[in-house]
Write a protein that binds this DNA or RNA. Structure first.
Lengths: 322, 322
DNA sequence: CTGAAAGCGCTTACAG
DNA sequence: CTGAAAGCGCTTACAG
């Protein structure tokens, strides 16, 4: 069996006749042969690795999403014939230092970036360096960049609000963040759309920062306004936790006396039996890896960014019969 | 400047005279040259990568630790001249399938493993395959394996208990898990040791499963036993959260009327202002990477496993003046 | 289908 | 210090 034939069996199986191919494949399976990735990398000038920066700092809220996303990337990598290299440039001079290092040492071919924000220097640096990348989260302030995927927060709130009406709550209020945050405003829009589409008038609403005491205080008054038998859709799990605490403080049973929903399906949402909306991290990871793969093959960028619909996870906090 | 000299400058700088070395280094810095890791891997038969399996499933409790640990590994990798490849063998036939794949494709030289448990097939498989590894967490049931590091839970509870006494709580009770869990028993031992060493008698204690309602119910009676001005050291943040809820249910202010401490410094500990004990993930990641590095160099395994002391993070829940 | 060759970029041993 | 060579394990182009 020539070296050429084995290589063809792996790379261009269509060049071999069926019986030869099968013979080669069975021997490969028997010996457990796998081509050396180092040699393949050297030959192809591709590493087959995608870099993903993990930041040490970060709000609890953010980490609740980034960890599942990291797992999702690692899971989906196999299907894209690549693996994920995580890195963290603690104490770096510039936000792109870690990226420069990875590229120069040719450890990765491309990056998935997260936590994009206004004025983020990474997209521009990566573009200039000619390194493919795709972002988890919109690339704010750069409408020309379309290689991103994000969660459809409006759809999440629509689903949560519709669910609250469907299980029989009389009125649906809203606890959100102060106006002006893009993500917060989008989620609130979902609540408005679902309420309006159901033919109801908007319930009472309030705003609180992403802080438990502030949320609890705001919710204490708000749940009195919706009254027993009403429900509150929230812009985050933390705000929903505030509603839960406010209910307890009034002696109301969450779910039975007042319903509530959060967003992100964080660890404490499960602990508190809060209905929430689970971010479609696996779908997003798969999509983003597909994007960088296409860019590596020289394909064009997508027409536009992609929004993915999260999935409702119902728990006792939105069950009037609790 | 010969290829040989440049290579020597990087690998054996002591072979060059100072002026030559400096000249080479300045040119390297100017061009931003970094040796291709693919070529180095092929040559050395080492990839310079350490694999780390991320599991999709897992309790919220566990994920609160594994994510910071993953970040710590990525941060510490630079110092060990390696990088971290995360993988996840979702839908694998056996728990070692992902490991086999990574080794056969020669993507990594070694592994860091977490979530070791009794009957875990991974250590035996890795030993048989001759692949170096080190574990975050004791390798239960295999006292012969010493390549592990873990958190000293007894020290954590000692520190928490001593702190509660130091800030002036009259009595220190304990809320733990049902007896028989190794980690739980170790943490309880820390509470007993600190209490005894302070010359006090043990305060009241209770047990609850790692479930919020169970913890809240158990804590409701327990805090009445310690009384106002007392405090409860807990085996986990979730149990401490139960104490916090029980205090609120009684109309007591956490910190002022009853103190409480948790373990792990999870996201919700910060949200609820719970004093907790932060796992030394960075120290552990650094130690474990050092271990696998030594094994790769052919060094002997350590004499014994290593326990690292966690760090107390004080917040309002253990402040009588709140 | 086989077989011999070339080259990806390193590191090392060796002769000068 | 230089320079020429070898080899790590692949993939590909090419002659047979």
């Amino acid at each position: 069996m020539s070296r050429q034939t084995v290589s063809n069996a792996l790379v261009h199986p269509e060049r071999l006749k069926a019986p030869t191919l099968e013979k080669v494949q069975s021997v490969i399976a028997e010996l457990g042969y796998r081509p050396s990735s180092a040699a393949q990398s050297l030959r192809s000038q591709r590493t087959g690795a995608v870099g993903f920066e993990l930041l040490a700092i970060g709000s609890a809220n953010r980490n609740e999403i980034i960890y599942p996303f990291t797992v999702a990337l690692s899971e989906m990598a196999i299907g894209h014939n690549c693996h994920v290299v995580t890195f963290s440039a603690a104490g770096a001079q510039s936000p792109t230092e870690g990226y420069e290092d990875m590229i120069r040492a040719q450890v990765v071919d491309a990056f998935i970036i997260a936590d994009t924000h206004k004025g983020d220097p990474r997209p521009a640096w990566l573009d200039k360096a000619g390194v493919p990348y795709a972002a988890f989260g919109r690339v704010w302030g750069r409408p020309d960049i379309t290689s991103w995927a994000d969660v459809d927060g409006a759809a999440g709130l629509r689903d949560a609000t519709n669910h609250l009406f469907a299980v029989g709550y009389a009125q649906g209020g809203y606890l959100g963040w102060p106006f002006g945050s893009s993500i917060g405003d989008e989620r609130r829009r979902g609540w408005i759309e679902a309420t309006t589409a159901s033919g109801r008038s908007l319930g009472p609403e309030a705003q609180a920062e992403q802080d438990l005491d502030a949320a609890t205080d705001a919710a204490y008054d708000l749940i009195e306004q919706v009254g027993r038998g009403g429900a509150i859709a929230c812009a985050s799990d933390l705000l929903a936790m505030g509603v839960e605490r406010a209910a307890r403080r009034r002696g109301w049973v969450p779910g039975r006396d007042v319903g509530m929903t959060g967003i992100d399906d964080s660890s404490y949402a499960g602990m508190l039996k809060l209905t929430s909306v689970s971010q479609p991290v696996t779908t997003i990871a798969d999509y983003l890896l597909g994007l960088v793969h296409k860019r590596l093959e020289g394909g064009p960028p997508p027409e536009s960014g992609a929004l993915f619909r999260p999935a409702l996870v119902t728990r006792a906090s939105s069950d009037p019969n609790t």
